[in-house]
Nucleic acid binder design. Structure first.
Lengths: 109, 109
DNA sequence: TACATTCGCAACCATACGGTTGCACCTTAA
DNA sequence: TTAAGGTGCAACCGTATGGTTGCGAATGTA
């Protein structure tokens, strides 16, 4: 379920280093299960599952059950909202961010 | 003092809604003191000061003492690092982020 | 059927964190 | 010199959060 405060949820999700590591793994492997990811980090499967839950809460990941395993996939679209927020507040102070803001505003997608 | 893990510090700083509000205020007022900002939020001056401290820890704000007051100014440059991280991990999955990544990689700084 | 995987839920624990109050220190103005 | 405004530091408190263990339920395999 997508939260109301997308930007807040995204920043909150990305604030944890383990979660950022998980995102890094998911960026390479297309899809993974909690048990698979637990083999890569010094965390229990349950710990991984919790992190994946908050990532899903932020809309950064999609769960799909297939048989007896649930596979997670990265869905980084909500990041653009967070980026847009940063470009907005920082745009008038930083040239690079202003360039970014106008770039996003130009709607080149 | 600028932290080693810039990206982590930035996400951590932006994860708190009150801190995002503070950044919003600083984006409009150029510079402000903790007591001034305390008048805008339902927080004590000390609470504001703490938040400003973590913002400074992330390099998002600059402190400058002038007489008996210390004024804070927004320095959003570190946000570009955070944006770059998102564009990198999300680039291969999201066209908008990929466009952003290549935009940043084109070296417009 | 029986057994092994894989998962989700719940309880639990320690620590980090947001927020407050209290107070001492420095700077400006009377 | 006294008083007031503005800060910073430290102690303190409650809750949120990262992390664990334990266990029952569902799915796949021998």
């Amino acid at each position: 379920m997508m939260r109301v405060d997308t930007v807040g949820a995204v920043f909150d999700a990305l604030a944890d280093p383990n979660r950022r590591t998980l995102i890094g793994f998911l960026a390479q492997r297309d899809t993974a299960t909690a048990t698979e990811l637990a083999a890569e980090l010094p965390l229990t499967r349950q710990g991984i599952a919790k992190h994946l839950a908050t990532l899903k809460e932020a809309g950064l990941v999609r769960r799909r059950r297939s048989g007896r395993e649930t596979r997670y996939k990265l869905t980084p679209e909500p990041m653009t909202d967070a980026i847009a927020w940063m470009a907005t507040v920082g745009g008038q102070w930083d040239d690079r961010l202003e360039a970014l803001r106008s770039h996003l505003a130009r709607g080149e997608h």
